[in-house]
Design a protein around this nucleic acid. Sequence first.
RNA 1: GGGGUCGUGGCCUAGUCCGGUUCAAGGCGCCUCCCUGUCACGGAGGAGAUCGCGAGUCCAAAUCUCGUCGGCCCCG
Length: 375
Amino acid sequence: MFKLIHQDKNSRARLGKLSTACGDIDTPCFMPVGTQGTVKTMSPLELEEAGAQVMLCNAYHLFLRPGIEVIKHSGGLHKFISWGKPILTDSGGYQIFSLALLRKVSDNGVEFQSHIDGMKHLLSPEDVIDIQSGLGSDIMMPLDECVHYPCARDHARLSMERTVDWGRRSKERLAKNLSGAGAKDGQLLFGIVQGSSYEDLRKECAEKITSIGFPGYAIGGVSVGEPKNLGNDIVDFTCGFLPPDKPRYVMGIGLPEDIVEAVGSGIDMFDCVVPTRYGRNGTAFTSGGKLVVRNSPYIEDQGPLDRQCRCYTCKNFSRAYLRHLFNTEEILGLRLVSLHNINFYLDLMRQIRDAIKKDEFAGFKRNFLSSYIKN
RNA sequence: GGGGUCGUGGCCUAGUCCGGUUCAAGGCGCCUCCCUGUCACGGAGGAGAUCGCGAGUCCAAAUCUCGUCGGCCCCG
């Protein structure tokens, strides 16, 4: 399942390979986010050409629409969305956090009020595993409770303990589904570590979750309003509580600088909406930093978004044209900048893997941050 | 030459009849910032007008009066 290929000699960064039912994933990796079964504005072909080895979908959203039965009847999620490579599905745990006004949480699960039609749905950790079993995702995430920052210690402890309990119940449910043919062979379930900003709670959670035993571990509850440095610290010390022989996934991270930082702490997997969301809003990631292509300095700029990039967008279109597309609200602009951003992220991951292979990650990180941040 | 009508930020307009806590407003455009397991082609904010110009009335004028300049329309 997970093979640690190389440990960088001068940092905690590592190179690995995660094998799933639908193929291998080179780590550290970035998983483009396709909440509703699509990475917004991008076709599976474009994703594949950019080098994506895995994508993320959201079980909660797909459960609401089109519904699990529709996807089952279509032959599973991979077939439904025409993506043959690995899929990781998020549980809806993050929606407990982000849809605060539309839900109620108890030990038994979450009551969501659908943002689509207002209907109420009660989802237990078992329901969420059943949904993901039905989707046929390669890596499933258990329901967890992600809290805002700052979070009172008592509340952080309760949600941490609830997350552990839900993790245990999720694992039991998956075992039952696998033995009863309710799940696809080889479906993996990761454990999630919560505990807010409290190091001792993170440690306790990591110990409890790893003693339950999962094929991979995620760090949740980061980038929920905390200061930047604290977020990095949480990832860093939590990583130290996780076993080296299993993949480590930090959920929802992040900006390029966050990813480079977290790789240095020993993280293997990332997902983030930023490259596509920023792409749709006219901000490009480049080797020289963020570039808001809508801004006036680019009105006559004949250069590409990033001279060092070889993506379709950079090979064919100028900043001036992209700015024009955004100013006239033409859909192609959203697509081209999203495409570039995804290429930038996946290329960044390739460079990271390459640097680790050569034991040069520390230098790579230093160089990257200095040229990226200076903008 | 006579009569009428209009003139408010880059653009289009509201307000003028009944002058003063909707009087300087709105839309578009322009500019900038934000976005981290996506309720999202989203969110927030900013700059920019001595209301054509001049004089008068009044405690007070985009608003009333007179003059003047410019645009448009009609009549000679």
